[in-house]
Design a protein around this nucleic acid. Structure first.
Lengths: 244, 244
DNA sequence: AATTAATGTGTTGTAAGTACATATTTGTAT
DNA sequence: ATACAAATATGTACTTACAACACATTAATT
């Protein structure tokens, strides 16, 4: 930035449009949901010729009067009609040649939403939920963006109570475990899983039972209100002894 | 991005310079070193009037033909004269009003370098190493950027062998422990610390001793070559069972 | 030769992680 | 109504990591 090479404001303005204001800034959202025991991501058909028949993530250019975080919220609201979503910045992708139409850098966000509550704005362009594990190729560098966001989700999912954004208000422990298994692509031991969740102390027992299941119903739980978060607040000062 | 709203390339070009290519893109580097038992960061005096007497991080605008990662390497090389540095992207800061001269978004990187090897390009502008814990205020949003990068460093330091980039090739366990303590701002138990480091199996015993210390010399170690990394390679597929 | 200051290591209790088995409840089919 | 199938619910023993803590050893200094 200008402060780095210590340009005066006047100098900055002189060279601006010539050399620097030629990079477009976009955001791309990796919007996850959980449906039919699968982790899915919201994709849309790319209509650039270069990427015919490939899907891309949802994104848009950032407006001049709009914060980066605000832009990602806008995408999400425009596309899913949901307010109040979980959203977190992951990484910025800035290779020179990542976009065929010109120099565009993009900041990737991931988002977790409850499949039941969203109402997709189904335009044309084949906007739809796609199972994450079936996706091999995407337009642009979007497969790399997806992988990066999925990895971030996996890293956070055991340490932070973010996963509940993918579930309805009330859920059984079986549903929760199946969701973990879908995200992590592992099988978990039911007894140990329940112990681990119990230790976290994230849940409230609702004293209600599942209904309409073709077997013995399980208890229903919900996330304790104090753990509900729209974005993951990373601890600003980390004073707990990480070692010894 | 354009692919999000599915503009055709022609449309994209039509609106580009009018509305979107007015955001400048910069990188800022939080360059850490370890000197006199303190964690320090490389800063330079801001010469924007708004921030007279405040320090800022080292950054620059990203060039049109330069990858984002390349830009941060360039800053680092220009300023420290070092090749081969550890560098990792942390977060992108994109508030509308974060820069007084116009709309500038910046991607923050943190870097770890061995204080002994760098030769500062001491221009004017009071470029110097500043102890991290003494910094209360900086120009722009640079204090927030510094805090974010320090937090990232703290998160990574016990899990990944990155800290060795701050040390000379050969070091004693005492030096290593003091470095951890400086970064984490905690005191560590020597015996437990050594056990924990031993388990990681990151080090080679060089069968050499410290010299010129005013007390019983300790053994010297170095990082096993297979752990030397310029950037932290985040695991792409995480198959280890995170739960149970 | 005595003192000082740091190195180097071991033990014990506690908490968490892992592997594994049995009894219980409900819905369904006969 | 009874038997069966399928999922819930829970406990124990073993192993590994974490935390608190104390003593003998080595080299430099006086």
């Amino acid at each position: 930035m200008a402060k780095g090479i210590n340009l005066k404001t006047a100098e900055l303005e002189k060279i601006s449009h010539l050399d620097y204001f030629n990079i477009a800034v976009s955001v791309d959202c990796v919007i996850f949901c959980y449906e039919n025991k699968e982790l899915k991501v919201l994709v849309i058909k790319s209509d650039l010729e270069e990427f015919s028949n490939l899907y891309s993530l949802l994104g848009d250019l950032v407006r001049l009067d709009e914060d980066l975080d605000t832009a990602s919220y806008r995408i999400l609201q425009e596309r899913t009609g949901m307010e109040d979503v979980y959203l977190e910045q992951v990484h910025t992708f800035g290779s020179v040649d990542r976009h065929p139409s010109g120099r565009v850098i993009t900041t990737a966000y991931y988002s977790l939403i409850d499949a039941k509550h969203q109402k997709l704005r189904l335009t044309n362009n084949d906007l739809h939920w796609h199972p994450v594990k079936n996706i091999k190729k995407m337009a642009f560098d979007h497969k790399a963006i997806l992988d990066t966001c999925l990895n971030r989700l996996r890293e956070q999912v055991m340490e932070h109570p973010v996963i509940f954004n993918l579930l309805p208000e009330k859920f059984s422990l079986r549903e929760l475990q199946e969701l973990y298994e879908a995200i992590l692509s592992v099988e978990l031991d039911r007894r140990n899983f329940r112990k681990k969740i119990a230790i976290k102390d994230w849940l409230v027992d609702l004293n209600e039972m599942e209904e309409d299941v073709p077997h013995r119903p399980g208890k229903l739980y919900k996330l304790k209100p104090e753990f509900k978060r729209k974005t993951l607040r990373r601890k600003t000062s980390n004073q707990r002894p990480l070692v010894a």
